[in-house]
Structure formats: structure tokens, C-alpha cells
Design a protein around this nucleic acid. Structure first.
Length: 510
DNA sequence: CTTCAAATAT
DNA sequence: TATATTTGAA
């Protein structure tokens, strides 16, 4: 019910009534297609997206939901929102243009306003040019999908006085948390905390998927190592009125998420590999899973084999026969919408598609790994901070299906030569007996693309430091012996028992 | 200017 | 509660 609002079926009534309150009529499921057809999105202008960079496909790229949201949330009185402001990119600014509009459109939270003083601030009338350093309030007319969810309460919640009680409440909080930290202890009084010189906290930047995509694009372009806020900002251009701080903040989170992601993936990959070796080494014997089939490595946070990406897409397709899944991206850039009524993560656009406009695709694009883990990785990466997240151009197109051979999932017995994603492909150093040291145990992580320090650290750290992590279900990993014998078959000398014992002991105790 | 982490908002 | 974003300091 609730998700209907965020999903494809905007009620036409929204338009006719000019009602900015979300209308959840709960159309019968079958109506979605009709509604989609009913509305001609192509006539909508793309707000605040510049077509200047030919690499963007405005017509396909913008989620209709957002456009609809613009309409839906827009008070009837405001008519300027959809002004093709984006059509005026040259003005290096235009940021201010959106101000009032956004404030109105932003119904849920992102905007605290209503204070007359604030409104004054938000409209830098005289400011022809906005310097980045001015840290001007940032707004995007992105009324994100989430806003559609807000029903009756949106009016009330939209109004948040500047001197919210939050400041007061944070008093105790901060004092408590500040204890032990030297940083904040001497900082401003709670009453003033969180407010700029003018006494108001800056409006949050809404990192919409599109915005995030641009961000990621810039980061990729620069390379993970060289991606610093200022450079990113340069690449992204001034169109979004972001400040360096905004970028820095987002970058911080980006790195953080990425780190976690890499660790997780590495973890999964390592277990995939172990499973493969396990299976190759003769498979289960006594402690084998009762249900026939190979031992499926339980990976934390991953959907069960066969249920990932395409399952969702397939379901969506089944639901809308003949039509692609109506909405093909998450409500939030991170793929984890916080709204309770958020629809299940859409999939199509999240699948790895190298943007057409990005000239030579990365090397890995040409040699896709064969291992299903690759798709796991791609999927999860794309869902969050992955490089290819939010590729444009195929918002609602069916996901590109990998070659049939690649679709074999974990259920399929691993092929002898099957290796995980090259990013994590283990390199078994030939001469050195495998687990010699408890540090690396002969297993290296080969990284491709833009291996960041964090990535490597995270990957290595998680794989090697927490080998016990993914061991739910009471399943045992392959015994060292079986692994070793398998390695031996592959031409890698067995390690002396002493070394093996040492290694295993070290692994167990570390 | 960048990065980190607390504070704050949602 | 968890997550996202801002803010301020190092």
C-alpha cells in the first residue's frame, strides 16, 4: 500500500488537484502499467540536470518518480519548480534559483524552514555568483521519492523551527558523549551548536542517486587515491551548488561504505574460494549438508543463492509482463532506504553496465570474471557505493543478463578453474608453501581497478584476521588437509605438517 | 585543504 | 535505532 506512492503509480489526481499531499489510492496492482503509460514523462523537463555533458542521457536517466514528486509535492502556488532551470547551466550558479522552490517541495525533512529570517537567507537575491567557499545553503529541487511516502503529516513535519528543541536535547547528549574526547569538549555551547554564524544549520544536501552518480563518476575519474574534495568538486561542476564540505562529507562516507563493502566482498570471496577448494577436494563426507549438493558457503548479508539480482528483476517482470520493472533504483543512493514503506530494492539499473559515455571501459569490463561471486559483488557494490552504481542510460531497461555460463550460482558445483572475482582472486605463490606465516598464509589478494589502501586493508584484514566470521550453520570449512591436497593436485607443494599445524594454530588463535 | 569524528537531524 | 549530513577541529 504505502509503497505504491513511491512506485510507479502516481495518482493523476495529484496533478489535477495540485495537491501536494501524497495521494495513496492503492491502485490495484495491475494498474501500474496503465498509469505509467498514462503519464508522458518525456514531456517533463529534467530539473537541474545539465545536458551539457553528452554523457548523460537525460531522457532516460531521470527517474520519473522524481519528476512526479516535483509535481506531487509542489504546492499549487509554486509554479517555478519545473522551470527548465537546468537549461541554464552556463550560469555557473543557478543554485539560488532553486531555493524557495525546494523548500516548498521538500516536505519531509530535509528542510527546516518557515522562519522568515531563514527564508531571507535562502534567497541570495543579490548573489549573482556564489562562491563555493561561501558555503551557501545547498538545495536541490530533488524531491526525492521518499517524499511521496509522506502523507498527511508532511505539512506538519515540513515546518521545523530553527530553534528546535534538538539543540537543547543535544546538550546532555553531547556532554555525555564528549566525555573522553578532547575534541568537542571546549567547543561552542549547546545552544549554539549546529548553527552557523547566522544561527541556523545548513540545509542538508540531498544526495540523490543522480547526484551520487555524478560524484562517483568524478571519483572514478580521478582515481580513488586522488579523489579529494576540491578535485571532485571541480569535476562535478558547480551545477549542484555543492560545497567542498559537502563533497568531503560525502567522500568520507563513500570511503567508509566502500571499505565495508570491500571487506564484505572479500570475505565472501574468500569463502567462496574455500568452498570451491572444499568441493574440489572431494566434497563433504561426514559433516556434509544433508541436502545433496555442494556446500554452499554461507555469506553474511547475501541473499541465498539464486535469489539475487535477477530474481528481483524477474519477479518484477513477472509482475509487469512485457514491461520492465517500473522503478529501477533505490530510493536512496545507498540502496538502503530508511523509510519503512520503501519498496524492495529495485535492480535493473544497478547491474553492472559500463556507462556508454565513459569511453574505454575498464579492463575488467572486457573480461568479466566467471565466478558467480562476481555478480554478487557487482550487485552489492552497485547497490551501494560501487563504481558503476547508478549508471545512467538504462534506468528502466531490463538488466543485462550475463552469459548463461555466468549465471551459474553457488548451487552449481564449482569448476576446477573457477576463480572468484579477479579483484579478490587469490594468488597462490608457487614456491612458497602456503600457510607459512600466520600473516598472509600464502594467500594474497590481487586487486584490480583502483585498489585503494583502505580497500586492501579492509579486504586483507577481514579475510585474514577474521577467518572465523562466516561460519554460521555449524558448517565446518574444509579441513586443511583437504585444501592442501587439492593444492597439491594443482601443482602446489604440500606444506610440511609442522608448518601446517603452525599455520592452523595461528589461524585459530588469531 | 583534507581528514576525522562528534553533533545533529531525520 | 540507524543512518545521513553537518560541523568543527586537527
Amino acid at each position: 500500500m504505502l509503497e505504491v506512492a513511491t512506485l510507479p503509480s502516481p495518482n493523476p489526481a495529484v496533478f489535477s488537484l495540485g495537491d501536494h499531499h501524497h495521494v495513496d489510492v492503492g491502485f490495484p496492482e495491475g494498474e501500474d502499467d496503465f498509469l505509467l503509460d498514462y503519464i508522458d514523462f518525456s514531456t517533463c523537463d529534467v530539473p537541474f540536470f545539465h545536458v551539457d555533458d553528452g554523457d548523460i542521457l537525460p531522457d532516460l536517466e531521470v527517474d520519473p518518480t522524481e519528476l512526479l514528486a516535483e509535481f506531487a509535492d509542489e504546492p499549487a502556488t509554486t509554479t517555478t519548480v519545473l522551470r527548465p532551470a537546468a537549461a541554464e547551466p552556463a550560469s555557473t550558479d543557478g543554485c539560488g534559483d532553486h531555493h524557495g522552490v525546494v523548500d516548498e517541495a521538500k516536505t519531509t525533512a530535509s528542510v527546516e524552514m518557515e522562519s522568515p529570517a531563514k527564508m531571507d537567507m535562502e534567497l541570495p537575491e543579490g548573489k549573482g555568483e556564489t562562491k563555493e567557499s561561501e558555503e551557501e545553503d545547498v538545495k536541490h529541487s530533488n524531491t526525492d521519492n521518499k517524499n511521496n511516502n509522506v502523507a498527511a503529516d508532511e505539512v506538519g513535519s515540513a515546518v521545523t523551527t530553527d530553534d528546535s528543541s534538538a539543540a537543547v536535547g543535544s546538550d546532555a547528549k553531547s556532554s555525555a558523549s564528549a566525555e573522553g574526547h578532547s575534541k568537542r569538549t571546549s567547543s561552542k555551547p549547546a545552544s549554539a551548536s549546529g548553527k552557523n554564524s547566522h544561527g541556523r544549520r545548513k540545509v542538508k544536501v540531498d544526495w540523490t542517486p543522480e547526484l551520487h552518480r555524478r560524484f562517483v563518476q568524478a571519483v572514478e575519474q580521478l582515481g580513488l587515491d586522488k579523489a579529494v574534495p576540491s578535485r571532485i568538486l571541480e569535476l562535478m561542476g558547480n551545477e549542484y551548488c555543492l560545497t567542498r564540505h559537502n563533497i568531503a562529507s560525502h567522500l568520507q562516507k563513500y570511503r567508509s561504505h566502500r571499505k565495508h563493502l570491500m571487506a564484505r566482498e572479500a570475505e565472501a570471496a574468500s569463502w567462496t574460494q574455500k568452498r570451491q577448494m572444499y568441493a574440489a577436494a572431494g566434497g563433504p563426507r561426514k559433516d556434509a549438508p544433508a541436502a545433496g549438493g555442494p556446500w554452499v558457503v554461507p555469506t553474511i548479508g547475501f541473499p541465498p543463492p539464486g535469489t539475487i539480482p535477477h530474481a528481483h528483476a524477474a519477479a518484477a517482470m513477472a509482475h509487469h509482463p512485457g514491461h520492465p520493472p517500473p522503478f529501477c533504483r533505490p530510493l536512496h543512493v545507498w540502496g538502503h532506504p530508511t523509510g519503512v514503506d520503501a519498496p524492495p530494492p529495485p535492480v535493473a539499473s544497478m547491474l553492472p553496465v559500463w556507462p556508454r559515455h565513459l569511453a574505454p571501459p575498464p579492463a575488467w569490463a572486457h573480461q568479466p570474471p566467471v565466478d558467480p561471486a562476481y555478480w554478487h559483488q557487482q550487485y552489492n557494490a552497485a547497490r551501494k557505493w560501487g563504481p558503476q552504481a547508478m549508471t545512467q542510460g538504462t534506468p528502466c531497461a531490463p538488466p543485462p543478463m550475463p552469459p548463461a555460463a555466468m549465471l551459474q550460482r553457488f548451487a552449481a558445483p564449482p569448476m576446477a578453474g573457477m576463480m572468484p572475482h579477479p579483484m579478490y582472486r587469490p594468488i597462490l605463490s608457487p614456491p612458497a608453501p602456503a600457510p607459512q606465516s600466520n600473516k598472509v598464509s600464502g594467500l594474497q589478494l590481487q586487486l584490480d581497478a583502483h585498489p585503494s589502501k583502505e580497500s586492501i586493508d579492509a579486504a586483507i584484514g577481514d579475510v585474514l584476521v577474521k577467518p572465523w566470521l562466516p561460519l554460521p550453520l555449524g558448517l565446518k570449512p574444509p579441513s586443511l588437509d583437504s585444501v592442501m591436497s587439492e593444492l597439491h593436485k594443482q601443482g602446489i607443494p604440500k606444506i610440511p605438517p609442522a608448518a601446517a599445524a603452525k599455520a592452523s594454530g595461528a589461524a585459530a588463535s588469531s
